Amino acid sequence: MKDKLQQAIALMQNSKLDKAAALFAEIIEEHPNDPVGYTNFGNLLLHMQDAERAQRFFEKAIELDPYAATAHYGLGNLYYEQSLYAKAQKHLQTAIEYGLMEADTYYLLGMTLQHQKYHKLALPYLLRAVELNPDDEEFLFQYGLSLAQCEHLKEAEEIFYKVLQKNDNHSDAYYNLGVIALYDEQPEKALEHFEEALRIQPDHVLAANGRKRVTAYLHERQ
């Protein structure tokens, strides 16, 4: 089973989805009481944007083994994609509880909490995701955003600068640095950051609004 499973996963990663599906179906037929085949088929179906069938496969895997952490992660991921954040949170927490303590799991759980406006609860999960995968630009940015939303502005500022070290064309990092500069009562510095965001992304609505407000303020102050 192990060799066949690795072969099917490799086919999926190489976008040979029909061949991967056929192989996963064989694995399930040969091992109908093993949750692994159902979980992987669920992942494939989710990748193919067939959420309805993917859900059934994840649920079948959990029915066979309630402690199948990867199946809980798959179901959590599915609910996250459907913006059903409370349901996603439940399954992602279960996945971690049952041993799937990986960066992606912590990140996705943090994001479900962010979307539910539980910013303080999201913070430790996003921090853990960054600790486990410090090279992921998106993990780092979302952690910075969570810090800012919890009003830890100095720490957030440091994180946004780290994001720019990884990607100096990250318009949202510049925008958020502009907002922090405004809170620090540094309008000229804020304007520079908004200008940079707009240089990178001319249609950045929030940065354009920030630039407009700061420019008007600086004009009135003269």
Rank of each mutant, 00 (worst) to 15 (best):
Y161E: 10
L177H: 07
I180R: 11
F194T: 01
A181T: 01
Y183F: 15
H170F: 12
N169V: 11
P202A: 03
Y175F: 15
I200D: 00
H170W: 08
V205L: 14
L182P: 01
A197E: 03
D172F: 14
K166P: 03
I180P: 03
G178E: 01
N167Q: 09
A173P: 08
Q186Y: 09
I180K: 09
V205C: 06
K166H: 11
Q186T: 06
K189D: 05
K162Y: 13
P202L: 05
L206M: 08
N167T: 09
A181Y: 06
E185R: 15
Y175Q: 05
V179E: 06
D203S: 14
D172M: 12
R199D: 10
Y175H: 11
L191V: 06
I200S: 01
H193N: 11
E188I: 11
D172S: 08
E188G: 07
I180H: 10
L191K: 13
L164V: 04
H204K: 08
F194Y: 09
E185L: 15
A197R: 04
E188V: 10
E196P: 01
N167E: 06
A190N: 00
D172R: 09
E192Q: 13
D172T: 02
L206D: 08
D184N: 15
L198K: 06
Y174M: 03
D172N: 12
E196H: 15
Y161M: 12
A197Q: 03
L191N: 05
P202V: 07
L177V: 07
L198E: 02
D203G: 09
Q201F: 06
Y183C: 08
D168P: 01
L164H: 03
A173G: 08
R199L: 14
L206I: 04
S171Y: 12
R199E: 12
P187E: 00
Q201G: 03
Q165K: 15
Q186D: 05
Q186N: 05
L177D: 01
Q201L: 08
E196G: 05
I200H: 02
E196R: 15
D168Q: 13
D184Q: 15
G178A: 03
A190S: 04
K166A: 10
V205Y: 15
P187H: 00
V179L: 09
A173L: 11
L177Y: 10
V205Q: 13
E192I: 08
V179Q: 04
V179T: 05
V205K: 14
K189C: 02
Y174L: 03
E185F: 14
V179I: 10
E188L: 13
Y174S: 00
S171Q: 07
V179A: 05
